[in-house]
Design a protein around this nucleic acid. Structure first.
Length: 635
DNA sequence: TTAGGGTTAG
């Protein structure tokens, strides 16, 4: 990507001129207290304009203090419309739960006193308060007043009305009002709502919020104008609804259209980059933030830490973490989960220990990271102790994820009965993921009896999920019970359940190349195939014998070997080997868990070709180097 | 005086 096209962000606008330069000059709340005291002493505070200006600083400046604003407002004899609007807006925008309701109460006082009427600056705040409370009844009532005051064509009011319907989860009403505003206002030839970017942003955001990204995209494409916010809404909408590739594609389109990404764009697109493991693009984002003086605060920092660790570069994640001027609980969670995912258990526990002395209280998510770290390393006692501490000392209610970690930890360490006991006695309903952890453990421990039982539960719980059928079939296959295998496969066929296709991807010069099993679609398929042949020969020379027990089908040994030979992670590795300079580490992302055979093959490949190969599977990272894997074969 | 964000068991 060409990074030279980006300009630095524009500097903030200078302060507007003011009737009260003493107030405008205030830099802190202390400065304002002094001016305020002076105004009281000189009785200047009785000048409605002076009082309104003081109120505005307390209510809406960067150093806002609502209690002081309220005090000033309450002392006003007869606040003007400007002052009513100021205090209502401050309360409506506040993050304190009770404040939006107080905003509505003040609004009703304003209306019932009748000295000043609400205007086009009052309603956006009032509607914002309704939206925050999700109170449709009050919202509709306010809508009625908007119409009564003839403000239903004002662009600020209309976009807030639509937003209120969106936040009250009535998309039909939101859309109806949106389309009526676009048509009516265009027809009246007023300032056209068609061109009201905010109104369009609000409706696109509405569809994103209800998860209908398709509808959101249709509207996005129809927008008469787009601002950077429009792009941000759509990109984060894609990312948050699991459309990671679309999020990244749109991020690229945005640059083609010369719209400059801002802070929110970066925070929105990073999770998509993390999920796809697109390290080069992630690095580019990091660089872009630096070049354009976009502040890397705790929020953007957390997203970067997560991106580097999910893209296989845990060292870089640690560097970013250490350099951050401010870290919050999410930043800590990101680095702890990252270390856990990379099997760096000691480090994960170390960071956990450093958290509280740094003044950050661990959350339930922190414990998910810590428990998963213990489970990756088979630290049963430590895991049990963390779980007990969390419940009994910290008094955090365990969530299904914590139970999932514990089942995985106990089960894979061989304590299958204890794991099953935990599932049966947990106070919340176990879900398919919980049972899958136990099923995986049964498979690892070779306990077919329990495995069959668990697979049956799973088929009941998630009848269309191929995972349990495949696991059951694999278990029968490992016993050579082909009759049972055939039965399971027939059942799958009857229910039209297909095995999730295994896929692997590798990023090369910012482009993600994806491969599925036996993939021949890549433009360099021929070269990849001959590389695969060469790898296969080298592996045989090293004494590698393909492990065919995981191949589900009843085919002869030679055919099974051929399927293994063309597993997607091997194809991606072959492609990486022929496309990069010697010694370049290969980073591969796989959608399922890596199989036994690929795991042992990749260990050898790392030795034969002297490459570090970093594979992210569905659950964790494997760093293959010099014939060994960082998971120490416990996965 | 409108819109937008980061971490989470298999």
């Amino acid at each position: 990507m060409n990074s030279t096209i980006f300009k630095p962000t524009t500097p903030p606008p200078s302060h507007p001129s003011s009737l009260f330069p003493q107030i405008t000059a205030c830099k802190t709340i202390r400065d304002l207290h002094q001016v305020h005291a002076l105004f009281i002493k000189t009785r200047q505070i009785h000048d409605p304009l002076a009082a309104a200006e003081i109120l505005r600083f307390y209510a809406l400046s960067a150093h806002r203090n609502i209690e002081w604003a309220r005090a000033v407002f309450n002392h006003m004899q007869r606040p003007n419309c400007f002052s009513w609007n100021t205090i209502i807006r401050a309360l409506a925008e506040s993050s304190v739960d009770e404040h939006p309701l107080e905003a509505l109460l003040l609004f009703s006082q304003m209306v019932s006193y009748g000295f000043v009427g609400p205007n086009r600056f009052t309603f956006p705040s009032v509607l914002k308060a309704c939206a925050k409370m999700g109170n449709l009844g009050v919202g509709k009532c306010v809508h009625g007043m908007v119409v009564k005051f003839g403000l239903d064509t004002d662009e600020f009011v209309v976009s807030n009305l639509v937003r209120m319907y969106v936040m009250c989860k009535v998309m039909e009403d939101a859309h109806l009002l949106f389309s009526r505003s676009v048509v009516v206002c265009g027809h009246l030839n007023e300032r056209k709502q068609e061109g009201n970017v905010v109104l369009w942003n609000v409706i696109v955001d509405g569809y994103v919020r209800v998860g209908d990204v398709r509808a959101a995209r249709v509207l996005f494409d129809k927008m008469p104008q787009r601002s950077v916010v429009s792009w941000n809404v759509m990109i984060s909408g894609y990312a948050q609804n699991g459309f990671f590739r679309e999020a990244i594609d749109l991020f690229r389109d945005m640059q083609i259209e010369n719209v400059y990404p801002n802070y929110v764009t970066l925070v929105s697109v990073l999770p998509a980059i993390s999920r796809l493991g697109a390290l080069e693009l992630g690095k580019w984002i990091h660089l872009y933030a630096g070049k354009n003086r976009i502040e890397i605060d705790d929020v953007l920092g957390s997203a970067l830490v997560d991106m580097y660790s999910k893209c296989g570069s845990i060292e870089k994640a640690l560097l970013v973490f250490e350099k951050l001027p401010k870290r919050n609980v999410i930043t800590w969670n990101a680095i702890i989960s990252g270390l856990a995912m990379h099997g760096r258990v000691e480090d994960a526990l170390d960071y956990f220990k450093k958290m509280e002395p740094a003044g950050v209280v661990p959350s339930d998510v922190t414990y998910i990271g810590i428990l998963s770290a213990c489970s990756h390393a088979g630290l049963v006692e430590q895991g049990r102790s963390f779980f007990n501490r969390m419940v009994n000392v910290i008094s955090l209610e365990p969530r299904i994820e914590h139970y999932g970690c514990m089942v995985d930890l106990l089960g894979r360490a061989g304590l299958l009965e204890e794991a099953e006991e935990l599932i049966l006695n947990m106070p919340i309903q176990p879900d398919d993921v919980t049972w899958k952890a136990l099923l995986g453990a049964c498979k690892k421990q070779g306990n077919i009896d329990m495995g069959k039982r668990v697979a049956e539960v799973l088929m009941d719980l998630a009848p269309h999920d191929s995972g349990s059928y495949v696991a059951l079939s694999n278990m029968y296959a490992s016993l050579g019970n082909w009759e049972a295998v055939a039965k399971v496969r027939l059942q799958m066929k009857d229910m039209d359940i297909r095995k999730d296709p295994g896929g692997s991807s590798i990023e090369l010069d910012g482009v993600i190349h994806e491969f599925v099993v036996e993939d021949e679609s890549h433009p360099r398929a021929r070269e990849i195939h001959s590389m695969l042949e060469e790898i296969s020969n080298q592996l045989s020379l090293e004494g590698h014998r393909p492990d065919t027990t995981q191949v589900l089908l009843n085919m002869d040994e030679e055919e099974k070997q051929s399927v293994l030979h063309y597993h997607s992670e091997k194809i991606a590795t072959a492609f990486g080997l022929i496309s990069t300079a010697p010694q370049t580490p290969l980073r591969i992302v796989k959608n399922l868990r890596i199989c036994e055979d690929c795991h042992s093959s990749l260990k050898l490949i790392s030795k034969i070709y002297e490459r570090m190969i970093i594979v992210r599977d569905r659950k964790r990272f494997h760093h293959f180097e010099q014939g060994l894997c960082s998971c120490m074969d416990y996965w």
